[in-house]
Nucleic acid binder design. Sequence first.
RNA 1: UGGGGCGUGGCCAAGCGGUAAGGCGCGGGACUUUGGAUCCCGUAUUCGGGGGUUCGAAUCCUCCCGCCCCAACCA
Length: 564
Amino acid sequence: MIQPETPRAANFIRQMVAEDVKNGRFGGHVVTRFPPEPNGYLHIGHAKAICVDFGIAQEFGGRCHLRFDDTNPTKESTEYVESIMDTVRWLGFDWGPHLYYASDYFEQLYRWAVELIKAGKAYVDDLTPEQTREYRGTLTEPGRESPYRNRPVEESLDLFARMRTGEFEEGTRTLRAKIDMASGNLNLRDPVMYRIRKAAHHRTGDAWCIYPIYDWAHGQSDSIEGVTHSICTLEYEDHRPLYDWYLDQLGVHHSQQIEFARLNLSHTGMSERKLLELVEGGLVSGWDDPRMPTLAGLRRRGYTPESIRDFAERIGVAKADNLVDIALLEHCIREDLNRRAPRVMAVLRPLKLVIENYPTGQGEEVEAVNNPEDPAMGTRRVPFARELWIEQDDFRETPPPKYFRLSPGVEVRLRYAYIIKCTGVVKDPQTGEVTEVRCAYDPASRGGDARGRKVKGTIHWVSAAHAVEAEVRLYDHLFAKPKPDEEEEDWKAALNPTSLQVLTGCKLEPSLAGAAPASRHQFERQGYFCVDSVVSAPARLVFNRTVGLRDTWAKIEKTATPSG
RNA sequence: UGGGGCGUGGCCAAGCGGUAAGGCGCGGGACUUUGGAUCCCGUAUUCGGGGGUUCGAAUCCUCCCGCCCCAACCA
């Protein structure tokens, strides 16, 4: 695996684990796990967790398990299991033979539950869900004990066995741990361990109709697998006393739970509920829509696994709530692609350029560098001719201050080709719109050599006769506001109306004709683009803009005209 | 009003009693056949606030303030 260049920064988890290793706790071994519930797609927030879980194990010579927390059959499916495995692998992590499922432990969990009942530490409760809630009390008032709390052990044992055989309806009974209904920590007010769900499970089928709750399954699963450090997010901090309680009652291997703050990214959302709503509402094309913060979306957008791992390292790991600027993610992918993406010329919004003193019907090829950052990537030949396409943005009839590009009477360099001077324009008589730019070239400037002259601007171009057409999709932030979550009511109003711009009839240099799906390219002066892996076809190329290049000119122009 | 956490520059984040790392962003400059990349320089006299301990505090004590999480038979 390619290691990110960013050096490992200190963080409290690394320190805790290092301390344990030093002290020989857990025999000096490190075993972690990434425990997704297969109920949806992984997003960039999960990527942080994956990098922490696998990263810690890797750093300390340990191992990391992939364990599916599949204890709720009504929300889970093998489709999700597969997409999760695919995504973790894509991100660059390997769990080796350590693929596990909480559902593999159902029998063991059941036996342990019986053990707790026998020890008087758990009981079958007949309260309805509503009653259970009422009895639990509130944040400030203690709960009340269920009238079934002290029923005889034998009776609980019998009832629990019958719950398993399917004798009772959903919601009629639960198995609960007997802890403390007055605890300030609600998790300790006799937490439910099992509920009845007469639903088929994607792995165990109809073998069970009682399913363990997260708290009862998670710690015990960690214990069975010999996990030493069970790393999770902050919202489980309140659950740690319960996690510890179960393990202590059972007297089994006890791993250390450690919590860190989950990732929040600006201009997007990480709430599974809202992401689902976007998908189901057709506001995006699917879970892998390139605007989505899902790893499937980022992947389709052209992000590399290396850039995401680098991002995960750079944001750090701590316990303070955070909102990471999406600009950092964008910086990471730019930095990665700058090193590896081959350069190419593509005109997104074409404007015809005619070189009046260039012979009609003649052509030639100029040599272009594939990647100035990596000479080993070589050069290529690009066809040049009398009629070219240039970018609409690269011509202004009346140039604003500091505009280095083409305008009447001004010289500019056609990248890798010649210096040209604008001699005039052709306009649509009706609209007055410039439909064609006329110019003269300096034959002695072949290759772009300005020969001592100062030519401030260099623009890209594509030979009209050789151009390959394509559709290009320009993406911007999904949400216009940095914190769309602040808009709880009408959060969809915060969606960026221009998050997707589809450009058709874009003109690409011919070398792009056979571009492979998912291949990444830098369109010079514009950004990084990849061939869409879903809809692009040889006969109809479709590119996604992964991220734009830093655009200093846009910044200058924006500050010059604040309104624009 | 209960329990658990967290507060260091615009955003992340080191710091662990010896006098504020680094990254992103932003501003400026150099260089440039991508207004890209690269390279320089600048960007917290101060660590939520007040007291206290100490020769010395972001780090220890204390009080206060603010923010987040918890009342699914979800994870």
